[in-house]
Every structure is written in C-alpha cells, then in structure tokens.
Design a binder for these strands. Structure first.
Lengths: 218, 218
DNA sequence: AGCTACGTTAAACAGCCGTTCAACGGAAGG
DNA sequence: CCTTCCGTTGAACGGCTGTTTAACGTAGCT
C-alpha cells in the first residue's frame, strides 16, 4: 500500500508532485489527472479537493525529506554528500516541488526553512566545538540568516533560469553549484572587509548582545 | 501627460502596479479596473491585452528605478542611504511589484538582477581601491553571488512572512533589516571559518583562475 | 449643424477552472 | 444468485478569466 508501485491514489499524488514542480501550483487538476492516466473527478474523489491533494503532496514530500535526512545521518558523513549530490536528479521532482513551495509560501515552505535553520545551527555548534568555525554573537540569528540567504539565492537563481523542464534539472543544478561555490567559500574563509570597523560601529549602536539560549526573534 | 495626476491610462497603470504587488500577477483585470474606477474593457482598450499592461508596468517600474538611482548618485552618498531607508514606504508599491517580479521571473526580474550585479561590482571595485574590501579571485562571480543571495534572501523572507497587505510593508522591512544586519556584518567582517584550508582545497581542485576582465559566466 | 474621432461602458463570448452528480463495471460477501 | 460496495468515468454546473463587440456620449473640427 505504501510501496512505490502501489495504488492509484499514490500514482496521482506522484504525478501531482511532478506536475506542481514543473508548472507551479496553478497547474490544473485535469493536467495532473491526465499525467496519472485518470480523470479529474477521481482526483477530488480520492483527495477531497485540490487543496487536499496539495496537502497530501506536502505531507509526502516532508516525509521523504525526513526519511532521507535520517538515512544520511545514520550512514556516512562527509563523502556521502558528494554521492548524494551526484544522484541529485533522482530527487529532481522533489526539489522542484520544494522550490515551488518556497516560491509560493505556505506551511511546507515555513517548515523547510525551520528545518534548514535548525540544521545550520547544529552544524555551526559542531563546527565551533571542533574549532573550525568562528563563534557568533548570536548563533540562532546567524543560522537563520544563512538559511534564508542560501535557500533564497538558490530559489531566485532557479526562477530566473527558468527551471522546470524535465532533464534540465541536473545541468542547472550543477551550473548553480559551480557558480556559487567559489564566491561562497571565499566569503566564508576570508570575509569581505579588511577590518572590523563597520561591525564594531554597528555593535556600538546596538548595545545588547543576547546572553542565554533564548531565540533572538520569533 | 507624464505628471502623476494625469490621464486615465496612467491611473490604470498605477493601480495595476499596486494590485500586482499586493496580489501577484494572477490578479484579475476586473479587480485592477475597479481599483482605477474604470471597466475591464477599457484596460485592454488602452494596453491591448493583460500582457501589454504588464509590460507597461515593467517599463514604468524600470524607469522609476533608473530615475531614483540617478537621483541618489547625483545627490548625497552615505547619509542619503538612511533617509532613503526611512522613506521606504513611499516606494512600497514599487518594491512590492519588484518582489513579485522576482517571484515570477521574467525580463524585468532578470534586468533587475543584472543591475544589482553591476552595481555590486562597482561598489566592490571602489571598495578594493579604497582598501576596505578584500580583493576576490573573480570579482564578477562575487558580485553575482552577492546579488543573488541578498535579493533571494529578501524575496524568500518577504514571501514567508506573507507581505502584501498595505501598511505592513514598513514594519516588515524594518524587521528584516534588523534581523539581517548583524549576521551579515559579522560574516562580511570576519567570515565564518577560522582558516583557509577549505578554500585552498577547493582552489587546488579548480586550477584556472580568471585572468582578465572577461566574464566568468553568461 | 453635421461629422468624425475618441474615451468609456455594458454585455456577451469562448475557455478554463474546481467541484458535483448520476451512472457504469466489477469484485467481494451474504 | 443477488446485493452491496468501491473505484472510475463522462457529463454537467457555476464561476471566473481575458478578450471582443456594439452602442453611447461627448468633445473638437469643418
């Protein structure tokens, strides 16, 4: 029932994820139904409404993310990242769906950013403990900043480069990584400014550094 | 003819910019027409089609940007930035329209990113010449990276915080700046990593540094 | 005055949308 | 065998979309 090959409802949901990822959430029910080889009426019969279908897709994608993340955590640590990057096209429909979600906003997008922020904060903590990452005055704010910037930059890049057509994803993703890696590493390794005067000036204006683990914003 | 108070077509265009900014480009012609106090037929009579109206809005917004940018360049340099930030709500409809353009893609969005990238590169060049910014191995790539990250991060933040309702803009913008400034300054001033091993490892794998002024990507 | 041109409206049109309904087919259970 | 249920279909409905068309009024020109 839960296997990949399974029932008609599963096939419809999978087709919806792919179609939503390609065309955005304005895609029609009839197009999705045609992709799944069924009729529009059957879709709403199984999922109640288009919004129900959307929520089912969101739940499915969120579940896949959690499963894949758990799989990554239990298995390798560093080299796994490269192999996962290599088989990124296997996750192309999922990533496209996620990008559309970020583009449209909504609960799944918010949850994704929360997860990205949480993960980033973990990595920052581990990196500081290992002595490879400089500590921040507000680790939570830094994690949130990094999550928004990286996800938003990728979203904007894919939006402007008109991603969506099948088969384009792997090439586009590779190009994006190629364009971004060096400037990002440069910025992370040496910063941008030669001294700290701008930062210190700002810190003089904002006199309260956060002290304990309380979050710095909602 | 070009003044703000002017003709009906101008009023329709202005209403369209505001409505597109609030509701996105899926907003109906009748809603725009009602905002302008006219009928839907008149809109298409003046602009040919909805796409014509959209193009007119794009052109108008682009013209406003160029005018405002020229005004900023000819007048003050640094303190002007703060006063301009203070009266940001005067440009709220324009910025909302721009965010919707970035969200949807298209020519205006691409042009905007090009302008941001070009400006960033100028600032980087000036900063390097003044000795306050560390030079990059690929200044164009760095400028493009910064443009995508900053614009994309802001776009994503506003998308997830459901901006669009009138009057919300100033508060939301202020909150975004407050959240982003410190982590960004920290990152720009000190970077993220304690040493350059990751950067050097990457530079070893990619043996060709760009040499002259030729762009590093299309 | 008559004519023309233009801004403007209201109504109608075709098309797509999500959703509803009645009916059909086949399999399962009594 | 008959019945009951469930997956599935095709057609229909109301509503919204962008666009077209005919008509109306008015201003300006001859």
């Amino acid at each position: 029932m839960d296997a990949t090959g399974g029932g008609t409802a599963t096939r419809i949901r999978e087709a919806a994820i792919a179609r939503f990822g390609r065309d955005g959430f304005d895609a029609g029910l009839r197009a999705i139904a045609a992709d799944a080889g069924v009729t529009a009426g059957l879709v709403v019969h199984h999922f109640g409404s288009k919004d129900g279908l959307r929520r089912a897709c969101d739940a499915r994608v969120l579940r896949l993310i959690r499963e894949e993340k758990a799989k990554t955590l239990t298995s390798g640590t560093s080299e796994m990242l490269l192999t996962q990057l290599a088989e990124v096209e296997r996750f192309a429909p999922l990533v496209l769906y996620l990008l559309r979600s970020l583009q449209a906003g909504g609960e799944l997008a918010a949850e994704l950013i929360v997860q990205l922020t949480t993960d980033a904060e973990k990595y920052l903590t581990a990196g500081e403990a290992a002595g490879v990452i400089l500590p921040s005055r507000d680790r939570a704010a830094r994690a949130r900043y990094l999550a928004y910037q990286s996800a938003g930059g990728m979203l904007l890049w894919f939006t402007l480069h008109g991603v969506g057509a099948p088969g384009t994803f792997r090439t586009a993703f590779r190009q994006y990584v190629d364009e971004v890696t060096q400037p990002a590493l440069e910025l992370f390794a040496q910063g941008l400014l030669v001294d700290r005067t701008m930062l210190d000036d700002f810190l003089m204006q904002v006199p309260d550094p956060p002290e304990d683990g309380s979050p710095s914003a909602s």
